[in-house]
Write a protein that binds this DNA or RNA. Structure first.
Lengths: 199, 199, 199, 199
DNA sequence: AATGAATGAGGATTCATTCAT
DNA sequence: AATGAATGAATCCTCATTCAT
């Protein structure tokens, strides 16, 4: 016996289906994935997509927001870890793993105006910065590194894999290890340019 | 009255104009830059573009080929340098600098079928591998690194900058330095996964 | 707990709310006013509108019917006035005033098939014809004018205002006066074409 | 042997075909006539319409402009007539005749921002005002009438016909005669409202 | 070889209407 | 009776590509 609650449950399910379908389509076809294809993949009518997301851009913002939120959760959890250096490496590992399945990095380019996305991005940046500071106090990473640097480099291991002819699903771990080795405090080269501002 | 020779000269010039205009447009607007805008920027008619490049994809392949060729030239020149470690760093620096001006990375996604582009990419990969080997023989970089690894990581300094809210034009130098620090042989962490195959 | 009676009362109220909201929306946005906006303005769900009016066209027909009914009431009241000429002018004045607030003229274009609207229109035409005849018997207006003529010209004062760059709300009175001056019997020009048939 | 000139001639012809088709479609279906239908009627592809008119609104502006230009030509020609009163009547006659075939009055509603249309409208208004002044100096029409009044009333004879169940193509002449009788100077009623401003 | 007009498939979005709850 | 989610046809417009000149 379906209640009003059930109806809402159906709509919620459609929303999830759409987000999932959109992620897959965007991953496969990039930003030009069509709303029609997303709807088809989700098994709903084209119009339904606009009930849930007023605009294609809104849909993208929702996806990006979801990922940022997930990354924030990861980072906050790691903030209480006992070994700050390991925690930072763990953050980068989980981040890359989260991103690896759906490389939505390019989606960010469109969400530059969405205040919700921007707020989440700032929050993630702040949490990462806190983690970086802790790791530096523990002398686990080089002292000239900033949270902004880590934020910028966070996705590069996954991205590096994209330039390979036959990307294997695990190679990002290799590139993360190399980059993290660049974070070591011992024998670090003096950096040629000052750290970029965040805001 | 233009002679056959002159006409050919004009056509060649148009080709160059179109390639230059296309690079600028793609840099500014990404893959969605329109053929019409490129033609307008080059100062030729829309139809002319298709006389030179059968397809928008062909045009992109031509651009990407040009950049690969430039990178190959750089790499080959550095092959004869006396300090192989410095040469490798120099390669990555010049590559990033070359890319920074016209980020054509996204263009690669489309050229996966173009045999000319693939051949050039293979050639670049081979030259980089030779440089890497020399640097390893000189013990300038860690021995577990492969040419494929360097190829994959080559663009990441530039890409990292794209994730910053206010990208400053020089920040890639900072990220290249950090990543290159990860190439140091001393105290390198054992890499968790094997190097990916190239072909 | 609403009883059957209460529910019916609610439904009636909803119908009125919808009609009022629809008039406002149509006035503001023309025929393209959306059913969704009307529902929102009325404070009911979109589905409810279709319980009351099977079709958007039906809703429009209901509005037009209401206005025709109002005009009929005005005309019938004036049928008993002592000065038939003044009564005719009064009819045109009240009509224009009624129309001015909600220009529903454009709505008529759609209701050409609705028998209820057509019947009301015929009734209004008949009443106007009676008023015209009385005015002619009193020699207040030119004898070659027909009820059909007056019906046709009835809305023109309001419409004339629409062609002005800055319409002022009272200008229709000016145009009604001018047109009504064309109704004067003295010195009337012979009309070049016969009066149109009504049905 | 077709030259560049011929090609241009073809394009010009398509432009005319499109304008004609658009007028017919708009006349039949109102502002909601679809671009696709217009293209089909003109016998060209949908895309062609946008080569000639960047926007549906632009197309409408072109139509309205054409009509305003025609009316201006009529008015200017009549400015030199010997009998100014007859000239004014003639203007209204030719205007109505011009408009009768394609009632594009409603199209004006959309062109409120198009400076070209606005300029033509102002020019027409000015010319009409000149004609009115001349007619008043000749005591052919009432002295309290303005060019703005005539502009506003210009289309009403045609519009009146639209409210008839079976509009006959000539009835507008009847309504023009009636309205023009309202312009007579003798026995004119004092107008209840001041003449509206133009700009 | 160059031009630019024409083509038509494809894209995002809107909206009247239907339907499950 | 009311709700609001889902539908899918229709709309304006864009753009790579073709073609007549």
């Amino acid at each position: 016996m379906p209640t009003g609650r059930n109806q809402r449950a159906d709509a919620t399910r459609n929303r999830e289906l759409l987000l999932a379908a959109a992620e897959e389509e965007f991953t496969e076809k990039g930003l030009d994935a069509s709303v029609a294809d997303i709807a088809r993949r989700a098994g709903v009518a084209k119009g339904t997509i606009f009930r849930h997301f007023a605009t294609k851009e809104d849909l993208i913002a929702a996806i990006v927001s979801g990922h940022f939120a997930a990354l924030i959760a990861i980072a906050e959890r790691l903030l209480t870890a006992s070994d700050p250096g390991a925690a930072l490496l763990q953050l980068l590992t989980e981040t890359a793993d989260n991103i690896r399945q759906n490389d939505l990095l390019f989606l960010q380019s469109i969400t530059g105006n969405d205040s919700r996305v921007l707020a989440l991005r700032d929050e993630l940046h702040a949490t990462i910065t806190a983690l970086v500071t802790k790791a530096q106090e523990a002398k686990a990473i080089r002292p000239d590194l900033t949270g902004t640097d880590v934020f910028a480099l966070m996705c590069t291991p996954v991205h590096a894999v994209d330039f390979l002819p036959n990307p294997s699903p695990d190679s990002w771990k290799r590139y993360l290890a190399i980059i993290f080795d660049g974070f070591r405090p011992e024998g670090a080269t003096a950096l040629p340019v000052a750290a970029p501002d965040w805001g």
